[in-house]
Amino acid sequence: MNTIPDFTISPRIDQVGVEERASRFTKRSIKNETKINGLKLALNMIDLTTLEGKDTDGKVKQLCYKAMHLHDVYAGLPTVAAICVYPSMVGVAKKALGDSGIKVASVATAFPSGQSTRDIKIRDTKFAISQGADEIDMVISRGKFHQGEYNFVFDEIAAIKEACGNARLKVILETGELGTYDKVRKASDIAMYAGADFIKTSTGKISPAATMPVTLVMLEAIRDFYYKTGKKIAMKPAGGISKAKLALHYLVMLNEVLGEGWMNNEWFRFGASSLANDILMQLMKQRTGLYQSGDYFSND
């Protein structure tokens, strides 16, 4: 058995140092075939997301169609990794995606605030699973976390993990509400030891959402967990990654922190809605040599 660490003490993070390191990844110059391969990989790692109060069956269906037909614009492109929706839309998405191989991820556990009872959170999760969700994106109880009730947070994640059955569990830390990198690190450790398959930065509802330094802190937590236990945990930065260039910076970071073993969509995802289009535009620019206009790429 792994010994569970004392979450009241976690490895320290120096803010200036981690931000300096994160900015170093952006100095890598990604060119030619490396760029094309990187863009395709990034596309394949996207959890194409719509999480709005005004989501309708129609909107979700359009999104699913787009997810399956990226290669219409540019032959040979992979699909995105998953569609990410609210539990009520899981059934619609599942049906629309059919046997495309694209997974359906559902947020759950009183997303985005998580301010509800454990019972309701478990039922929320089970409902999404019953609708066919392949992956569950839960939120942690940030209030309890800030109160220092780390065991509560831990137990809740473990309970949701149990409710997930075979579905993979992504644990959203909502780093924008945690305040410091030290707390991001601590929350990452709690989530991983409690059974998370993924750790994820943000709901997309709070600013700041994903940043490179926050993601770096989480990747390093994953690395330490792997060193200790031999178990791989996947990573999902979400929110605020809308440009292809930034996505490439993230991939450089992933490659240089966790290495080849994580460079696929089983172990890394981008939670994004508009990133796909920017990647398509960049790929088209690489192919044609012309800078592109948004008018030529459908907005779904």
């Binding site: 120096d14 803010q15 200036v16 140092g17 305040g179 410091t180 700041p208």
Partner: peptide, 17 residues
């Protein structure tokens, strides 16, 4: 001052968000 060394010390300053 003729018998003093100058020592310069650096430390990061945290500046969250």
């Amino acid at each position: 001052n003729d018998f003093q060394e100058v020592k310069t010390t650096w430390h990061p300053i945290e500046n969250i968000g």
